[in-house]
Design a protein around this nucleic acid. Structure first.
Length: 907
RNA sequence: GGGCGAUUAACUCAGCUGGUUUAGAGUGCCUCCCUUACAAGGAGGACGUCACAGGUUCGACUCCUGUAUCGCCCACCA
């Protein structure tokens, strides 16, 4: 069979993928004979298209899943997608806009239809892309956070929390995105520093008694003059002596001439600005608290799109907030009330979806009380029931959990899980639909009368019996569904009508939960990971996963985070197209040191591409040799193992053990590197080179053994090419190899015994070969065929005789001549020495190298001598360390003498 | 403002509990080689005061304390 010399990833990968899918190789199920290993995928957004972050995240998961599958676990990778509230709604809104429509034009029901239609059409794009990457998810289980059963879980959870008083409704100041027109959680508000100004504004003072001493105005510093129409107080620190007179005055809000209260609070920083600040309870988080504390008025001056509303002077109504800022400053300037402005860095929240600057806004929202949920979630991490890799994330997690705030879960958008909340219009004067545009909200608590929390619409109000009932318009934060992902994907809470099926689902949950590990980026530690831990403990009474693996961020080669807006992304699909999914995966794994960021550029994927080709050609060569020598094998039993075979098989045993250890500790890059090194630098560079001329059946068997089993070690990283070669081996040999590599078993060590002698001898031979090559290069004889004259101690003669052919070939030697004595010696160790059969030649290169070696060794030796001359070292260091140093001294000094002797012979 | 992390070759990183490393690997660079598996390859080479300053120790890239630079996260300083 003809095998091309270049590996064709494209052809192979699609063929192999089809095979796996057809054979249902990714499937895992309850099986009491096996241990479970399970991972739930971080569900990508339905709107998502595969980017490098996904590629990294999913490759890590797939490596683990494939490794455990081969180790005999029921290895389940649960796939699915997230409905991604705002993101998806934005996409569909944009496509509507192309038709010149807004969602309000077609109404909620029609818009919802469009959303679902979009989901059906494009929602599986990312799933298909993950398949191309080789992700071996159990695809028939693919879940969506808005599946019927999943929605059931969301409702159930909401109701349970409500009944435990952990969900409440409150009029509170929240992060509001004026573009998306919805509330956001604290985590969804991304703080970024902006260049801005600190404005010093004079507020006029009216004396309340005629005879007191005070200035005619007070200066306050603010970054947001546009909110001044919402001011209801001026605050100072009670210790601030320069405002001692303030109690006897009245302060007037300019332009509108409203009187402001004066409050004194020790939280006010006397050193900031003038020490006096304006208090705007409806438009600032801090001021909101002050407002509640001092019973101030709350004046909301903005509409939901951040334009000024009717609570401001007529000529400002309808202005955008930033336009209003300039307009107000102009007016103040005219009135000579603007003292100065100073450049200032503002730390402003931005919408994580559309990057619009967030407006703090009072509105009626639903919240989850987090402290009670956090308690258990703190404990399981403190007790290491859940472990973080790398461990440092534990601190970050605990720090956040210990300072957790309540979670605003209602969103004023249309795409998502509508809150299972109904209002009796009779009892609830203020239902949510009315409050979002309301401009006079006060942070009072609302009565629960007429609020019905229920999965289905109640017939009548339990409080007044009236039938005028409407459902809450808001939907839940997307993360309110994703925090249930580890168990809702198993159809928790098992409320479907088919009881038999429910039983099966429950068994699956019991079998696979807690899942083994969760693989994710640090960005969603709080959004998702922390909340999943809380939800798992609250609703299933157990941790959702044992290990949390946090990988780095994908950056470009300059270290800048890859993002579409910066245009510095590398499209993984293009890399797959050019180099293959295996190359992509392997390159990523090799470069992703656990937890550290990955710097990528196109050429970094060459490692994987070149390695694929190396694997391909090693295979090709073995087949060619078998074919040339008419070798057929039908088993892999080795008659006797000795010499170089013993050496390489022992090396391979080490490789199995070490790579497995690395994989178990999630050090995937180390595992990848270990296997890479063995395959390329041991198997290809040495073993295959050595056996080229002596390709017997015995050697063929060992080659095929090493090939199959190193491919198995490699399979989690490079599934396609390894599967393909496994298939080639099946068709090119008579070996009895059943099934596919994906479901084959992980290699087991041969446990080669008594390998010390071979280890020493072969290592010495290999070192000598390198020396011969180096010396020939030093002498300018690189590839020239010359004779090698050797003096070998008698007990090593056999070793040389046995291995003569390949020593000759690997050193480009004409003849190996065994001698009693050499005229000149170029190299010497304890067992043999050699010279080259050459006549007078320029030795300067050789002597130069020799000098360098002598120098290095001299330096190293003097360090050892210094130690051994140090009495304190001899006194305090442990015995075996001293012993080692002594041996080092012996070794080095004899080596050094030898080198010096060699040199003296040439001078 | 608090916390976390990083700083080792031109670049990307290993070097885990101090002495097995005379500080390594890969890429890039330089030299030689199209040797009949692979030039997507082979054989070699150059390049490092391990950020800086102290300390602990017989001994520090490794542990401790500062300093500097960079990065990330959290936080209501208007």
């Amino acid at each position: 069979m003809e095998i091309p010399s270049k590996y064709n990833s494209k052809e192979t990968e699609s063929k192999i993928l089809e095979k796996w899918l057809q054979k249902n190789s990714y499937h895992a199920e309850v099986n009491s004979k096996n241990n479970p290993f399970s991972i739930v995928i971080p569900p990508p957004n339905v709107t998502g298209i595969l980017h490098m972050g996904h590629a990294l995240n999913n490759t890590i998961q797939d490596v683990l899943i494939r490794f455990k599958r081969m180790k005999g676990y029921q290895s389940l990778w649960m796939p699915g997608t997230d409905h991604a509230g705002i993101a998806t709604q934005n996409v569909v809104e944009r496509s509507l806009a192309k038709e010149g429509l807004k969602k309000e034009d077609i109404g909620r029901i029609e818009f919802d239809k469009r959303l679902w239609k979009w989901k059906e059409e494009y929602g599986s794009t990312i799933i298909d892309q993950l398949k191309k990457l080789g992700s071996s998810c159990d695809w028939e289980r693919t879940r969506f956070t808005m599946d019927d059963e999943y929605s059931e879980a969301v409702k159930e959870v909401f109701i349970r929390l409500y009944n435990k008083n952990l969900v409440y409704r409150s009029n509170y100041i929240i992060n509001w995105c004026p573009r998306c027109k919805t509330a956001l959680s604290d985590e969804e508000a991304v703080h970024k520093e902006l260049d801005g100004w600190l404005y010093y504004i004079k507020y006029p003072i009216k004396k309340s008694k005629p005879n007191i001493e005070c200035p005619d105005h007070i200066v306050v510093a603010t970054t947001r003059p546009e909110t001044m129409f919402g001011d209801t107080a001026i605050a100072i620190n009670p210790k601030d002596k320069k405002y001692a007179w303030i109690k006897d005055t009245k302060i007037i809000l300019p332009i509108v001439n409203r009187e402001l209260k004066v409050i004194e609070d020790k939280a006010i920083d006397m050193g900031f600005g003038t020490g006096a600040i304006k208090v705007t309870p409806a438009h600032d988080m801090v001021d909101f608290d002050l407002g509640k504390m001092y019973d101030l008025d709350f004046i909301n001056i903005m509409n939901d799109d951040a334009t000024l509303n009717k609570n401001v002077p007529d000529n400002f109504i309808g202005m955008d907030r930033f336009e209003a800022r300039e307009a107000i400053l102009d007016v103040l300037d005219e009135m000579k009330l603007l003292e100065k402005k100073v450049a200032y860095k503002i730390n402003a929240g931005h919408c994580y979806r559309c990057h619009t600057i967030i407006e703090p806004r009072i509105s009626l929202q639903w919240f989850v009380k987090m402290k009670p949920l956090a308690e258990k979630a703190i404990k399981v991490v403190e007790d290491d029931e859940i472990k973080f890799y790398p461990e440092r994330w534990k601190k970050v997690y605990l720090n956040w959990m210990n300072n957790i705030h309540d979670w605003c879960i209602s969103r004023q958008i249309w795409w998502g899980h509508r809150l299972p909340v109904y209002y009796c219009k009779n009892c609830q004067e203020t239902i949510n639909t009315d409050t979002n545009n309301n401009s006079d909200n006060k942070p009072s608590d609302f009565s629960n009368r007429g609020i019905i929390v229920s999965k289905t619409k109640p017939d009548k109000c339990p409080d007044c019996g009236c039938e005028n009932i409407v459902q809450e318009n808001d939907v839940l934060d997307t993360w309110f569904s994703s925090w249930l992902w580890p168990f809702a994907t198993f159809y928790w809470p098992f409320k479907i009508s088919d009881t038999e099926q429910n039983k099966i689902y429950q068994d699956e949950l019991n079998y696979f939960l807690p899942t083994s590990c969760l693989v994710t980026a640090s960005e969603i530690l709080f959004f998702w990971v922390a909340r999943m831990i809380m939800a798992g403990l609250e609703f299933t009474d157990q941790i959702p996963f044992h290990d949390v693996i946090i990988h780095g961020t994908v950056r470009d080669d300059k270290g800048i985070k890859m993002s579409k807006s910066l245009g510095n992304t590398i499209n993984p699909l293009e890399i797959i197209d050019k180099f293959g999914a295996d190359a992509l995966r392997f390159s990523l794994m090799l470069q992703a040191a656990s937890g550290s960021d990955v710097y990528l550029s196109d050429e970094k994927f060459l490692v994987g591409r070149n390695f694929s080709n190396k694997i391909w050609n090693a295979t090709r060569f073995i087949f060619i040799k078998m074919n040339d020598n008419n070798i057929e094998i039908d088993n892999l039993e080795f008659a006797k193992i000795e010499g170089i075979d013993k050496f390489i098989l022992n090396e391979f045993d080490q490789t199995i053990e070490q790579s497995e250890n690395y994989l178990n500790n999630y050090a995937l890059n180390e595992a990848a590197k270990k296997i890479y090194d063995f395959f390329w630098h041991m198997l290809c560079d040495w073993y295959i080179e050595i056996i080229k001329d002596d390709f017997t059946i015995a050697k063929a068997k060992i080659s095929i053994y090493l090939l199959i089993n190193s491919l198995k070690l490699l399979h989690p990283f490079m599934p396609f090419i390894t599967e393909e070669i496994f298939n080639l081996i099946k068709t090119n040999t008579n070996l009895n190899l059943d099934g596919l590599m994906i479901v084959s078993s992980w290699p087991v060590k041969l446990n080669i015994k008594n390998v010390e002698l071979e280890l020493k001898e072969i290592t010495m031979l290999l070192t000598t070969i390198k020396e011969i090559r180096n010396i020939k290069i030093d002498l300018g004889l690189a590839q020239k065929k010359v004779d090698l004259q050797v003096v070998v101690k008698s007990n090593q003669l056999q070793l040389w005789e046995d291995n003569k052919p390949w020593i000759k070939r690997l050193t480009s030697t004409q003849n190996i001549l065994f001698k009693k004595k050499l005229d000149k010696v170029l190299y010497e160790n304890n067992f043999w020495s050699f010279n080259l059969g050459i006549e007078s030649i320029d030795m300067s290169g050789f002597i130069f190298s020799l000098d360098k070696k002598i120098n290095n060794l001299d330096g190293a030796l003097s360090k050892v001598i210094k130690k051994l001359n140090n009495e304190k070292f001899l006194e305090k260091a442990s015995k075996d360390i001293i012993e080692k140093e002594k041996m080092k001294f012996d070794d080095m000094s004899s080596q050094l003498n030898r080198l010096k002797e060699l040199k003296s012979a040439f001078i």
